[in-house]
C-alpha cells in the first residue's frame, strides 16, 4: 500500500502540517520577524498543497496549478518585503520590533493637555 504513495499524495499532508505550524508560530510569537517568517511558512504549506495537487496521479503535472503557485510565491515575496520594511519603520518609531498587546496611546483616556 505504501508503495502506491506518490509524492503528489504525500506532500499535501506535509503542506497541511506546515500551514498549521506556521499558524501556531504566528499566534504564539510576538517578535515581528518571527511572525513574518511564520506567515511565509504558512504560505509554503499552501503552495505545497497546490503543487501536490498538480502532481497527483500518473499524468504529467498540471501546469495551471504550478503557474498559480509561481504567482503566489511572487505575491508572498512582495508582501514579505513590504512587511519587513514596515517592521523596520515600527522599530524606528518605538524601539521595539514587537506588537505589544493592550491599549495604544489613542485608546488611553487621559492626555496631558486635558489637565
Amino acid at each position: 500500500m505504501i508503495e502506491s504513495l506518490d509524492p503528489g499524495t504525500l506532500y499535501p499532508f506535509g503542506g497541511a502540517a506546515l500551514f498549521a505550524l506556521g499558524l501556531h508560530g504566528l499566534i504564539r510569537r510576538r517578535h515581528l520577524i518571527l511572525r513574518i517568517l511564520a506567515v511565509n511558512i504558512m504560505g509554503s504549506g499552501v503552495f505545497m498543497v497546490f503543487l501536490g495537487i498538480a502532481a497527483r496521479g500518473n499524468a504529467p503535472p498540471d501546469p495551471v496549478a504550478q503557474a498559480l503557485t509561481l504567482t503566489g510565491i511572487v505575491v508572498a515575496v512582495s508582501a514579505t518585503a513590504f512587511a519587513l520594511a514596515l517592521t523596520v519603520h515600527l522599530a524606528r518609531l518605538t524601539g521595539y520590533a514587537v506588537l505589544l498587546p493592550g491599549p495604544l496611546q489613542t485608546h488611553r483616556d487621559s492626555h496631558p493637555d486635558d489637565r
Binding site: 503528489g8 499535501p12 499532508f13 497541511a16 502540517a17 500551514f19 498549521a20 505550524l21 499558524l23 501556531h24 499566534i27 504564539r28 498543497v49 495537487i53 498538480a54 497527483r56 496521479g57 499524468a59 504529467p60 503535472p61 498540471d62 501546469p63 495551471v64 496549478a65
Partner: peptide, 27 residues
C-alpha cells in the same frame, strides 16, 4: 489552546485531503 487548535486544523485539513480523488485538473 493554540496547540489544540492548530493540531485540530492540521488534522481536518489532512482528512479533507485524504478524501480527494486524483483530478487531472486543467492539464
Amino acid at each position: 489552546i493554540t496547540l489544540v487548535v492548530t493540531v485540530g486544523l492540521a488534522g481536518l485539513l489532512m482528512a479533507t485531503l485524504a478524501t480527494q480523488e486524483h483530478d487531472p485538473g486543467l492539464q
